[in-house]
Design a protein around this nucleic acid. Sequence first.
DNA 1: GACTTTTAAATGTCTGACAAATGAAAACTG
DNA 2: CAGTTTTCATTTGTCAGACATTTAAAAGTC
Lengths: 262, 262
Amino acid sequence: MKTAPDTPADLSAQIASELRDLIVSGALIVDARLPSEAELAEQFDVSRPTIREALKRLAAQSLIRTERGAFGGAFVNRMSYGEARAQLVTTSTLLLTMNEVDFDTACEARFALERACAPMVAARRQDSHLGVMRSEIARQRSPGLSDEAFCASDVAFHLALTDGAENPILSYHLAGAIEAMQPLMNMITYSARSRSRIIDCHEAILSAAEARDGDGIDAGLDRLQNYTSDLAHLVMTERAARKAARAASPDSSPLNQMEKPK
Amino acid sequence: MKTAPDTPADLSAQIASELRDLIVSGALIVDARLPSEAELAEQFDVSRPTIREALKRLAAQSLIRTERGAFGGAFVNRMSYGEARAQLVTTSTLLLTMNEVDFDTACEARFALERACAPMVAARRQDSHLGVMRSEIARQRSPGLSDEAFCASDVAFHLALTDGAENPILSYHLAGAIEAMQPLMNMITYSARSRSRIIDCHEAILSAAEARDGDGIDAGLDRLQNYTSDLAHLVMTERAARKAARAASPDSSPLNQMEKPK
DNA sequence: GACTTTTAAATGTCTGACAAATGAAAACTG
DNA sequence: CAGTTTTCATTTGTCAGACATTTAAAAGTC
């Protein structure tokens, strides 16, 4: 199933791809030094700028790092959790915002993944996790909180919950699912009443986590998913109504809709 | 906690970061055309090669695409599922292989996420999904199958299962979790007996999916996780024993040299 | 009007050069 | 000789300019 590109890719893309394969396959191990740009240019029979573009592509994916100076060069980079997470969040966010993914689909996926943490959270959560969740709930109660700040705190709460599973790989994947939803969540206006209901869910989840009650966490997340979904529907019908009301105005706003593609 | 870089980043990295923010924030919408390289060079007051390196960084993350010719240029790229998936798999794979993540942690995360699909698969799976799963099980029964091919078929089986949830966002996340495990799974040697047991699990999962039995899928995945974990432990202890037995032999592995193309 | 040619704009690539950083070796000093 | 300073080679970062290639619109031709 090899790619037979109709239009042969750029040289820098081809070279980046070859080097990427060497790294992913393990032929080049962590901290291994790649040949200098001049040597690579000679080996691949291209000019140095072309090699540099290839290396920048790899650097953008955190596959290599470069050091200047005498014994510097390009080195295979150890993929850190932080870098991996940043990549994942960027990619997931754009996947959601650019593809008219309907809110329910994204929401369902996110909460399904989050519920997967429940049993482990119940078994392993530490006081530190509960502490973060508690303080985020307190923040969410602040009267003057903007919708964006409320959402950010919501994300922090859920990340703390998933961290409670004490599985960094799971936390990594969940960060992608949860943080990527933030732009979509930010489109919702949270009234005092809706905030209160969300906080109720958070408290139920926190209590269940304290009691090491996996099913309770699950139930709390389920309630939260349903309510979030309802809220989003409300916002969308409201928005659609407003739009229909002034259908004459040439509203060419490029805002991404959250509508179902099917 | 804003960027206070101890070592100021490269110009191309800074510029790439600025443009990336514009895209992620939505200031540049899908298919929007960026200024030409010459214009960008003038705007940022840098040379064209520097701008090009910045653009290549963005291209490597599938944030932009470039088209040649008059009225060509760099355009904001719609993040497709395929591109997002490829990015995710690369990142996740390297995260696992470069960080000495222990097998149980990765395995636990992967199966936890996969179990999250079970209820949705039970509710929505189509005959096409069952068909793929069935044919992959058949392939896994082939006598001459290499360990790598067996693993690949295993991955295909599980991807078909998760696709059964009929939620593309969920499939995207699961692809990252499942495919990233393949290098780790490839380190295991699958005896005829162990293959048989794995296939048993697959059949149990398939039957449960046919019967729309979510708990059955869950149970099958749980069994599979336990058995996979046991297998991995066996391989590890075996390998450790072999290594200890011939601790004196100076196995000088031939270093991976970069081969010259062309 | 349909087809062909021209042309302008843009990316892809190359050459050559210089600046800046960096660590190692050489030179120097006490 | 020990310790410090200087020099220096290597490598990445950046720039300027040029040419090749691609592409679609514009102009020209029948």
